[in-house]
């Protein structure tokens, strides 16, 4: 029982990271219908920016702020320069997808040239172990869970209570109609990229504290960004959030009986199982139509 509780706590903390990856990528995809593979690059940019700012002498908090800013600027640049140009040129989804993969690989290589390929870690987080009975976890796990929960709550509040949030939901619901009533969808595409990048930066920051940053982190991040979206149902952010936690739990509890080297495979088993049982995802009613 204690072991199960321990694995659940471990799963929820990693699931919180998947939650942030899922809702950030899911928001961008729901608004823009762009398969933003370069979201992995945003993740790497955020992780290495935090490291860079700390090397410059900034505190851990300021490094976090710098990392968020760098991620937002990068995400907006990818939309404003690359995707907008491709949309104007009537590029197909495949072309956009390939361009996004190209961006991810280019960014990873440029970062490797600048920073080297060894693991970069962030110093200064005072890790404290908390023990409740035989179950132990640390304060970083609490921060991960709290950060994901608060950011998800704030995002939902923003989307449902503010004018621009409602406009974003309108663009998700019917992009052509949004233009018809006078919403400049290009601005909202940019906003979606800014918000999505803002949400992924804390995940990158926390992962860098926990296990350090490597340049191939982008590929890992993009896999765990779209898996919750597909499992939760395309367009459903609560679905993506719940799916992120489910993947975290499945991976963690899975290693109870299976060797940890197969952990990633467990996430894909969950993905395939959901696709077979409910092809539209847990909360997906329609493909491509948003239900936030």
């Amino acid at each position: 029982m204690d072991l199960l509780l321990q694995l659940t706590i471990n799963g929820l903390s990693m699931g919180s990271i998947y939650l942030l990856l899922g809702i950030s990528w899911g928001l961008i995809f729901a608004v823009t219908r762009t398969f933003h593979f370069a979201h992995g690059a945003t993740f790497v940019v955020a992780a290495y920016s935090a490291y860079f700012f700390q090397q410059l002498g900034f505190s851990l908090i300021l490094a976090a702020v710098g990392s968020v800013l760098a991620a937002v600027l990068f995400g907006m640049a990818v939309e404003g320069i690359l995707y907008r140009y491709l949309r104007k040129a009537f590029a197909s989804h495949l072309v956009v997808f390939v361009a996004a993969i190209g961006t991810l690989i280019t960014v990873e290589n440029l970062i490797a040239m600048g920073f080297g390929t060894d693991v970069k870690t962030l110093e200064g987080f005072p890790i404290k172990v908390i023990k409740i009975g035989k179950v132990g976890f640390n304060n970083l796990h609490v921060v991960m869970f709290a950060t994901a929960g608060i950011l998800f709550f704030l995002l939902m509040l923003y989307l449902h209570r503010t004018k621009t949030g409602k406009a974003l939901r309108a663009v998700i619901s019917n992009p052509e109609m949004a233009e018809v009533i006078g919403i400049d969808t290009r601005k909202y595409f940019l906003l979606a990229f800014a918000l999505g990048s803002l949400l992924v930066a804390p995940a990158a920051f926390l992962v860098t504290i926990e296990r350090g940053a490597t340049i191939d982190l982008g590929h890992w991040a993009i896999l765990y960004a779209f898996m919750p979206v597909i499992i939760g149902g395309i367009g459903s952010l609560p679905g993506a959030a719940l799916a992120g936690l489910i993947i975290g739990l499945a991976e963690s509890i899975g290693i109870w009986k299976i060797s940890s080297q197969w952990q990633v495979g467990i996430a894909f088993v969950v993905l395939v199982a959901v696709m077979i049982l409910k092809p539209t995802g847990l909360f997906g009613f329609r493909v491509y139509r948003g239900k936030i």
Binding site: K166, I172, S173, N174, M177, R289
Partner: peptide
């Protein structure tokens, strides 16, 4: 008014009106 579904199906009636008065 476009052909077909000229509204936001996932928003409430009131939200539709609010958003069109953006």
């Amino acid at each position: 008014m476009p052909q077909g579904q000229g509204l936001f199906p996932d928003l409430t009636v009131m939200e539709n009106l609010e958003i069109s008065c953006f």
